[in-house]
Design a protein around this nucleic acid. Sequence first.
RNA 1: GCCGAUGUAGCUCAAUGGUAGAGCAGCGGAUUUGUAAUCCGUUGGUUGGAGGUUCAAGUCCCCUCAUCGGCUCCA
Length: 647
Amino acid sequence: MKVEEIKVTLPDGSVMDFKKGVSGEEVAKAISERLLKDAVAMKVDGILKDIASPLNEDCSIEILTSKNKESLEIYRHSTAHLLANAVKELFPETKIAIGPVIEDGFYYDFDRETPFTPEDLPAIEQKMAEIAKRGNPIERQDVSSEEAIRLFKGEDEPYKVELVTEKGQGGMVSIYKQGNFTDFCRGPHLSSTSKIKEGTFKLLSIAGAYWKGDEKNKMLQRIYGTSFFTKKELDEHLKKLEEARLRDHRKLGKELDLFSVADEIGGGLILWHPKGAIVRKTIEDFWREEHIKNGYEFVFTPHIGRSTLWETSGHLDFYKENMYPRMEMENQTFYAKPMNCPFHVMIYKSKHRSYRELPLRWAELGTVYRYEKSGVLHGLMRVRGFTQDDAHLFVPQDDMEKEVVSVINFTIHILKSFGFTEFSSFIATKPEKSVGEEERWNAATDALKRAAESVDLLYEMDEGGGAFYGPKIDIKIKDALGRSWQLSTVQFDFNLPEKFNLEYIGKDNKPHTPYMIHRALLGSLERFFGILIENFAGAFPLWLAPEQVRVMSIADRHIPYCEKLLAEFKEKGIRCSSDFRPEKINYKIREAQLEKVPYMLISGDREIENESVSVRTRSGGDRGSKKVVEFLDEFFKKVKSKEIKLD
RNA sequence: GCCGAUGUAGCUCAAUGGUAGAGCAGCGGAUUUGUAAUCCGUUGGUUGGAGGUUCAAGUCCCCUCAUCGGCUCCA
């Protein structure tokens, strides 16, 4: 009997002959023992497969090792299965739900009467290591949905039964077995549990999570973890998490005396302390100057408005669950504003408008209040009262795209000024609760896409994530730790102008309806401040630092000279303070350093003699003596250029 | 809102059901100092709040509030 042969093409173009049904492992082995050892999975004609899968026809294959970017996901996915395997061995009564790979690791959801505790994690990790060592092969089986359902019913795994029923749709599904643990999974997976090396995975936290992410469903227990091919990478990752923890704006906010929240006032309501407030003022001043340069005007509007306003705007229909409850007064009903737009619209409506005035660009640092569920509040990042750096642009319909482009450019210019250089974006489309016809939504969404493309801004689609009145483009930045934050939002609105019957008289002497753009560049000042704190780890760039310079005396006899400097600096608008206490200079330096003051100016006998200051920067240490005029020159240069680094 | 954890001095943390403590900060004093902590003394608490069990509660139970990790949601 003749053995059928197949031709296998490798990534370098070479072709090898194998018997039909050869496994990926055998192919890897034929190339090199080393490759077999390193093999994670393979791609057959571009499709990810287990390394043990048979090859039944001519194909091109690529053996994936830890160097390929898909491999880490496979490794983590197998680690997630290992986690579930360990949990089932330790706590057999547990029902397993779902365990996907996420950005920095994986999780697995479990249903168990007794919740897991943090103390359980080391025990589970240990069990995982034990199972890994057993080296059970991880085997894929393709079975019918019915068979899989029968199997999981037999194992009393209702969540798996539900998943197979949904995803299998009666066809074939794949299951993976390792030892006596079976999971429903698309794969691919590592070939053996022994491929997961001890010390390369870590369980991180426990949390509640709704089954299928729906708050109507039962809450399950989620265990988060992560894994890497090497212990070194895992350690680096854990170090990064630790670094993020150290930069936590809530911790730094307290340490640097920037802001606080008080029980007596309520969660999510921020108190800006003087040091935080001066940073905010600096941001606001810059923001205002740039807006003037870019053709904006400023408006101010109240914090509350009558219910009729919110009825017309649609907020009471579409946004009520986020609004603070009504206030009754003299038979009138008021609401605290969750958005500024209706107020700006009313300014527009205060008189007749001509096409000659358009586009009108009105900006306001408008403080809004939104009800947020207590569980979501988070430092400055998620609050109940916040100030948006808001603006509304009233634009002739034909000019919308052009205006959106210029808003996006403006946004990027502003964000760059704060040291952010990496951007990406989401274009969010029509949500379920929304107003306006499908066609206009689509046209507006397309306009946003074209605008993003014209400024080379990468975007992903966020289906159903738009505001109720129109689609939007949200711009995200990457911070110093590589984390993404959403800041800016540019929203297309063809609905509010209609609801409020906005119009302008065109060239043709006829009324036309303008469109609106809602936009916020920094998002909210609270969140932006939080992001800045974390990005700079509390060490604000010179132009933003609450205290830019601290003048320190060596001994009491130097105080008069220091006071003269202080007065001169203050006069020149430098945010500066003094430390004239009879303490050792080391003590004063340590304190200023911990407070992250950019410049420490030390003066003693030597400095008095030649009209100089000894300059120390928080990042560069002792910079030696400089003439006062030289220092001032350097100082103002750095402030003006908004330099991030001091030396 | 939901699941879990936590809540002790301004901050960071101790205290088998048996008299609430330390370091730092603060305050008082001494020290006059050259690039990340000088020394001595000292104030400070309805243990988040309200109830209960007990001879006795920071500790055990119930309720409540806040915070933290997530889920859902979001600037």
